[in-house]
Simulated assay, not measured.
Amino acid sequence: MKLARYTHGGVTTIGAITGERVVPLSALDQAAPSTIREVLAAGPDLIARLTRALVGTSVGVPLADVRLEAPIPDAQKYLAIGMNYHDHAEEAARAGIKVPENQLWFNKQVTCITGPYDPIYKPRVSEKMDYEAELGVVIGRRCRYVSIEEAASVVGGYFVANDVTARDWQFKSPTFTLGKSFDSHGPMGPWITTADEVMDPHALDMKLWVNGEQRQSASTGGMIYNIWQQIHELSQVMTLEPGDLIATGTCANVGIALGKFLQPGDVVRVEIQGLGHIENTVADEPV
């Protein structure tokens, strides 16, 4: 099931995507939760029931008539791993950046979250705004000390992400958090594709374009640490909650490696096989 949060007629609600329509969950089940985070927390039985109700339904509104919003705007955590693709680690090494010997984690503060087609703002205080195409994971079940073998069972779904980064701020601090957390630098969506629809999250084509020029292209199989290893590692430290977001790393040809940073007017599109795409225009930060 593809779970979307959207605005239509001035009202924001959640629904399920079917073809080119979105159906409000309340039309499928009057007792359905009001947030995607709560739907995922309710577990596979609810998702299966909603999926059955969606089959053959004729209600809903055209996707073209709605505004898609960030599916989970109120996540408690947004965690991201650095240099987690072999080709990206290699380009970093060529630039003289030390490749970490272990999983390298940082926070994207949740105030960075924005919608799949919303503008992303170039900060007044940064001259090195960069893009990073990433597969996003959303946790579906509260968990701690998850084994690698059990990790798939706590995943609620997947989404398309762009880990927008202010490189000058990233490298001015011993941690990456400041450079990764500017407002609007966490576009996500276009919806949450539930885990039951993704046969193998490590076999998806991931691509990024800037102004129609393809910059990044890789399979999610290029990760150094796979999703299950990532969840295992994080859960040794903290309790993961339904709705927590994980960005699983980017591939080669980020802007800093090409000497091409984002500027106002640029249009950045990220697409992942089976999950849809997000597309964001860079704009000057509002005064």
Rank of each mutant, 00 (worst) to 15 (best):
R52E: 00
T114Q: 04
T7D: 04
V287F: 12
H8R: 03
Q229T: 00
G60T: 14
D29F: 02
P44R: 14
I246P: 01
N280C: 11
I256M: 08
S184H: 09
G115N: 08
W169T: 12
G15Q: 09
K207T: 09
S58D: 11
H185K: 07
E132N: 14
N102D: 10
H277S: 13
G243P: 06
P44F: 05
M83C: 09
V164F: 13
E197A: 07
I72T: 05
T111K: 05
T18H: 05
T114Y: 07
G259A: 09
A95I: 04
Q76D: 06
F106S: 04
I192L: 04
S153M: 07
D118Y: 11
N162E: 03
L135Q: 11
M129T: 03
R94Y: 01
T239N: 06
V39R: 12
G274Q: 00
I113D: 01
M199C: 08
A257P: 01
A133G: 14
S58M: 08
A48D: 02
V287D: 14
A133L: 03
G212V: 02
P119W: 09
V237M: 15
R67N: 08
L208D: 15
V237F: 15
T7K: 13
G15P: 15
T175N: 14
G243Y: 13
G179C: 02
V155D: 02
P123K: 09
S235V: 01
E69Q: 14
R142P: 01
T250F: 04
V237C: 15
D65R: 08
A166I: 05
I97C: 08
G255F: 12
R49V: 03
G10T: 07
E101S: 14
L79F: 05
A151Q: 05
K108G: 03
G140M: 02
Q263W: 07
A195W: 02
L40S: 12
V164N: 13
K108T: 00
P264V: 14
P190R: 07
E134T: 04
G276A: 05
P44E: 10
L245H: 05
W228P: 01
R269H: 13
T250I: 12
K180H: 10
Y158G: 00
L79H: 07
A203Y: 00
L40D: 13
G19M: 08
C143P: 07
P242M: 03
A80K: 03
L240G: 08
Y131K: 09
P73I: 03
I81Y: 05
L54N: 05
Y6V: 05
I272P: 07
A75F: 07
P286D: 10
R67L: 00
M199L: 08
A152S: 12
I192Q: 08
V267F: 01
E101I: 11
Y85S: 05
A42Y: 08
P62S: 13
T114H: 04
E285C: 12
T18E: 04
A53H: 12
I81K: 01
Y131A: 00
H232G: 01
C112D: 10
G189R: 00
Q170R: 13
M1F: 08
V11F: 01
